[in-house]
Amino acid sequence: MSETHDHSHDHDHPTHTHDGKPIQEDPLPSLEAQILEASVRELLIEKGVISSDDVRRAIDQVESRTPALGAKIVARAWDDPAFKETLMSDSDEALMAFGIDMRPTELCVVENTDDVHNMVVCTLCSCYPRPVLGIPPAWYKRRDYRSRAVREPRAILREFGTDIPEQKQVRVHDSNADLRYLVLPQRPDGTEGWDQEKLARLVTRDAMIGVSDVLEPADIDD
């Protein structure tokens, strides 16, 4: 998705355009930020505010969340209209059933329909619904995805193998502030009578970010 280019960046653009690809390079990780993080962490441990084990546990907990949790939520919304209504109107309440607490953010569920395809990006950093999907994929944090998703979403979608017909609206959600976004994909045909566990197997991480559709019934084993 990215290509390097060799011209220097000392010129000013009103809008930073490179053939429609506004920003291409990822900066190197900031050494300053790494040093700051280590210093603060070591100080807090030294002063007994937190322990190394607390840090490990917190990382363990964050990393234990996977897209399987989001898939369960989507499958239930497909199967249970009352749950879906709560999920769309009062997501805090709906997520309680899954032991998920989004605070201090809120989950905003956006529904794909015959007329609308939703996709999610965070242009300013990499805001992501971690409590329901876990750690974001590497490409979600890359500058090229973040800049191009708002600028040329259909081109990005095609690169992900997702061709949205011209007559269907593409709605991009820039997750820039206090909400986190989950795409509720459309339930595929041919899944009538499936239980939630089987339905959840169709729901991929990428479909919940909105860069692809869910799997087809033929894609999974019985």
């Binding site: 809008t15 429609g20 040329e152 259909r154 609206q169 709605r171 959600h173 820039d174 820039n176 502030a177």
Partner: peptide, 21 residues
Amino acid sequence: QGELWEDYDGAPDDTLEIEIY
């Protein structure tokens, strides 16, 4: 999208939603 990008290359109904204080 046409309001955000003069040369937006997509469908005319495409939109973007974002949180603003």
